[in-house]
Structure formats: structure tokens, C-alpha cells
């Protein structure tokens, strides 16, 4: 077991994944899983890699840094011992909900929402933000995909979010994910 986590961040351009994967291949490493995303023009990738027995995070970091020299990218290699948090070890039974906040962007919005969700035992699985400005409410929207444990009192969570909505002049709704799925996925 010689695993590492690799993060790659920076301006998007062709060839980033090709470079990362080629260096890993040269080191006889194996990519076990990966995910990449784009935030406007910013690229971000996360890879979990099994290294050869005689290799190390430091050596791979050196090789990747060398390969990316001159490109405006941040690469970090972290040793990874597969330890999991309490949440994963004792994951409660959850229901998937979608929390949406309609209204203009403002400082502290994510902090307030995320803290309220955390205080009610809710885990955020994905956040999407759409802030295009203007008057169309659908152009000023934050979407939190969350897992809500059975122990969470929904009314208390709704009250906490309603309080934020009032203070920050937002329209917040909490809807079970199934309604979005059944309306969107006609072919399933």
C-alpha cells in the first residue's frame, strides 16, 4: 500500500491530464480514480494513485513539478493512508435533498448556509453557484446537493434556513431530490 492523492489546479488548457498521467505511467503508478472539474476557466483535478513500492510522494512531486515547469499550474502530491472520517465509518441513513437559494451573491452566503446545514447534521455532496447578475432570479442561484440524516428534524432545518433567508434577503427552498429526478429524467 503506497498511495498518494494528487491535486492539480490552474488555468485550463489542453494537455494537463496528458502530462499528469504520463508522469504517473513513467513511475509505474496506477490511477485508481480521478475527477476533474472546471470553475469558469479554472481547471481542477483530484487523482488517487497507487505507486510502485520503491516510489514516494516526494519523488513523484518532483517529477510532476519538473513536467509542469513554465505552466501556470499548482501540483501537489500528498501521501494517503486511506483513513476515513467518522462520517464515513458510521454513515447514517440519509435522504438526498436539494437546497436552493435564490438571490444576489453576497459575502458570507455560503458560510451561513453551510454552517446551518452542518449544525443540523447535513452533509453537502455538491454545490453549484450561478451568479450572472441581472433581474432573472434563475441567474442568481446557489444549489446545494445534500444528504440529510434521518435524525435531522426537517422543520428545525427549514426554520434555520428560513432565518438566513430573511436576514440575507434570499428565497431558500428545501426539496427532496426525487422531485427533480422524476421531472427531469423522463427516460429511465
Amino acid at each position: 500500500m503506497n498511495k498518494v492523492l494528487i491535486s492539480v489546479l490552474g488555468s485550463d488548457q489542453p494537455g494537463i491530464m496528458a502530462k499528469v498521467a504520463s508522469v504517473i505511467k513513467q513511475h509505474n503508478g496506477n490511477i485508481e480514480n480521478l475527477s476533474q472539474t472546471l470553475l469558469d476557466t479554472v481547471f481542477g483535478a483530484l487523482l488517487r494513485v497507487e505507486l510502485a513500492a520503491d516510489d514516494s510522494a516526494e519523488k513523484l512531486q518532483e517529477a510532476l513539478s519538473h513536467s509542469f515547469a513554465g505552466l501556470d499550474l499548482f501540483v501537489r502530491v500528498h501521501p494517503w493512508n486511506e483513513s476515513t472520517t467518522d462520517w464515513h465509518q458510521h454513515k447514517p441513513e440519509t435522504q438526498p435533498y436539494i437546497v436552493t437559494a435564490i438571490g444576489p451573491d453576497r459575502q458570507g452566503l455560503v458560510a451561513e448556509m453551510a454552517t446551518a446545514l452542518f449544525e443540523h447534521g447535513v452533509n453537502i455532496t455538491n454545490i453549484q453557484a450561478i451568479f450572472k447578475g441581472g433581474k432573472n432570479p434563475m441567474d442568481n442561484l446557489m444549489v446545494f446537493e445534500v444528504d440529510v440524516p434521518r435524525s435531522t428534524v426537517m422543520d428545525a432545518l427549514r426554520d434555520a434556513l428560513a432565518d438566513i433567508a430573511q436576514r440575507l434577503d434570499l428565497e431558500i427552498s428545501v426539496q427532496h431530490r426525487k422531485i427533480f429526478e422524476s421531472v427531469s429524467n423522463i427516460l429511465n
Binding site: 436539494i98 455538491n126 442561484l141 422531485i179 427531469s184
Partner: peptide, 14 residues
């Protein structure tokens, strides 16, 4: 993951 388009269109309908 749901696409933002799916989420927006459902929200709009309601």
C-alpha cells in the same frame, strides 16, 4: 449529480 439546467427548469415550473 443533477445538471443545473434540470434544477433550474424544475424550480421555474414550481
Amino acid at each position: 449529480m443533477l445538471s443545473s439546467k434540470d434544477i433550474i427548469s424544475t424550480l421555474q415550473m414550481v
